[in-house]
Design a protein around this nucleic acid. Structure first.
Lengths: 371, 371
DNA sequence: TTTAGCACTCTTAATATTAGAGTGCTAAAT
DNA sequence: ATTTAGCACTCTAATATTAAGAGTGCTAAA
């Protein structure tokens, strides 16, 4: 409220605007146009109602007339930053408008508020120790904080090195193999054995594997066992190597989704067709499985924003995705993100994703000490 | 088609019906009325269209007139087995009608078709070894087979006995504890330690725990460690005991849901309000967390069917739930189920749930050999 | 360059109209 | 004692009609 009034003081005529402070990146985007675009987005994000020239002038007490605003909006539309749903409707932002907003207009996404940080930290403290569920819980916290759908991918290791392997007999011919890697990943796998095997033998095998293969990655292990002779030992070592390989492959990546309900209630999804389309995109569409590996390998380290599919993902047309990597680059990384309607609070989503990815990185770092 | 014609031969007059074969359980439900109810349900399940007297007579070539059918339908309605959406619409089954159908009219749900069984078995073969994901995969297979939403609860143990515990150093003061119980459950837990501790010491502790506490449950362990003196050993043993307790408590139960998309496309959910309501019930409603523990402790061993919430669960009003227990009674059990609109193919859902619960039981049994 | 004024367009809601589907009831037929 | 033909009646669903109002774009004046 007070905020809006402050900003209006910069807002007199276009000329005055152009003369002012910021080194303008484009001839077209005068300060006044920026301001109008900003207001259109702000209002539309809050209300999901097309924004009219009158409303802008009245609500924000601008020292210019609705007609002037209309002229400017017409220009903004010509350049593709906003549109009309129909002739006699107010303006709504286009994807290009959101893009410009996110890059130039939005207040720099700061941190979340301190109380919020505390709430999240508190929840994370509990997550920390619950290895099985921590990704799901992280997704759930993210969804709640960003008030949208959250996705979290299980972390993917680039070079898994054995920290420890245990073999536990389950039945005469069935054993459980638990593999822990240097980066803290745990993978369980059942092995069916050709011969009945006692726990003593399994223990002896695992202790030999531990002492001889500790700290090695898949390639080293494969090399190492080439000239081993004990057939049983080699069989198990092979299974171990396979397990490490499966960790490095993407097909092990799991995606946790939470908070569909948050998004479902947004007014843009009062249209049943859209709601269904959007749900399916998120549950089983092709976009996420494409984007996530990209983010994992991207050079960009920070938060990435994809608005309305950005012409690449048809099924994300109505959605925006805010993503960041978490983990330790080059060793073990995953993705955490927020999905919502293009009309989302970008600032909040970005802050959330940034903060949570940070926390998740800390957790992983802790867990993967090279101790 | 041929099937329907066969059945019609029993269908002449009400009197003839009453005289016939089956020992009738109620005065009211003559064979003819049963047949009509059956047809109404069958048609409605296929088409989601209210079923008219004419349609019944024509499509099934009944040797009676539409007027007679109307009279019978009026009776069925008076007794609450079917209803009208409005005066000039055909009949649709009520929950009571579905209930009667499931109990008396439906062909006994047999097994799934052999090819289907093979498909499922094939998928299960892969699930078998993937311990981390097997529940999710089971849910996913169930959803696909029943063409509805599937839920699977993680199995809950009544009396967890230690099979093996391993401690793996992660950082100086951070260790990973992996607990495997007799019934094959694996639980990982991070421990933060008061003092820096080397792997050797951790290994020595775990081997002592293994040898002294093998096969014991939480109570026995608590008893056992009372007079231990090694402080560190006691600390760890306590954490172990806590972990076993958490396995026995319900708060560890996780619910896997799959196939929301299947249900979303049903025509009854063209109404956006219903769709949202139903999604929320399934994602976060109170009904499932109430029902599942009931099923876990119920005397009823077979498949249970809850139609339209059966007056107990307001948020399931539009849904039916088909549930069965899997696992080993008294040791470790979970729940697998199918959720869909009340207008579901009960036969198929029941067969599916029956078959899958069977397979899951086998898997668990295999895994929990008292070897 | 800005703005007042105004014609114009399009949406949305409300209201009417109509055809047809399917029933319930009555009275005749078996 | 059932069953059925016949028919009046009810309600839906689709389509058209109307009217009010929101908000624009354009023109001409400030």
């Amino acid at each position: 409220m007070g905020n809006e009034q402050d900003q209006n003081q910069e807002l007199t005529t276009a000329k005055a605007g152009e003369v002012q402070n910021t080194p303008r990146s484009s001839e077209f985007m005068t300060d006044r146009r920026k301001e109008i675009l900003k207001i259109v987005i702000k209002e539309y994000v809050n209300s999901y109602m097309p924004v009219s020239s009158d409303a802008i002038v009245n609500k924000y007490r601008l020292p210019i007339s609705p007609a002037t605003v209309r002229n400017e909006m017409a220009e903004l539309e010509r350049e593709g930053y906003i549109t009309h749903p129909h002739t006699s409707a107010g303006r709504i932002p286009s994807d290009k408008g959101y893009r410009f907003f996110v890059e130039h207009l939005m207040e720099r996404p700061g941190s979340l508020s301190v109380p919020e940080q505390h709430t999240i930290q508190h929840q994370f403290y509990q997550i920390q120790l619950e290895l099985n569920e921590w990704l799901r819980l992280a997704a759930s916290v993210t969804a709640r904080t960003a008030q949208n759908v959250a996705v979290v991918s299980s972390p993917h290791a680039f070079d898994s090195r054995l920290k420890r392997v245990e073999l536990i007999g389950v039945q005469e011919r069935l054993a459980l193999m638990v593999v822990v890697t240097q980066d803290g990943t745990i993978k369980e796998q059942m092995l069916s054995l050709d011969e009945p095997t006692a726990q003593e033998e399994l223990s002896s095998v695992s202790s030999r594997l531990n002492s001889q293969l500790f700290g090695q990655n898949r390639v080293q292990i494969d090399n190492n066992i080439k000239d081993w002779t004990d057939e049983f030992l080699v069989t198990i070592a092979n299974r171990l190597s396979e397990t490490l390989r499966s960790l490095e492959q993407h097909n092990d990546t799991q995606l946790y989704r939470e908070g569909l309900a948050n998004m479902m209630n947004q007014p843009e999804f009062n249209d049943i067709t859209r709601l269904r389309q959007v749900m399916q995109s998120i549950e089983s569409g092709p976009a996420l499985p494409t984007i996530i590996p990209e983010v994992l390998t991207s050079d960009e380290a920070g938060v990435q924003v994809i608005i309305g599919g950005e012409n690449r993902f048809e099924d994300l047309r109505l959605l925006s995705v805010v993503l960041a990597r978490y983990g330790i680059d080059g060793q073990i990384v995953g993705v955490v993100g927020v999905i919502g309607p293009t009309r989302m609070e970008y600032n909040r989503s970005i802050s959330t994703v940034k903060y949570i990815s940070q926390l998740m990185t800390n957790l992983l770092t802790e867990r993967s000490g090279s101790f």
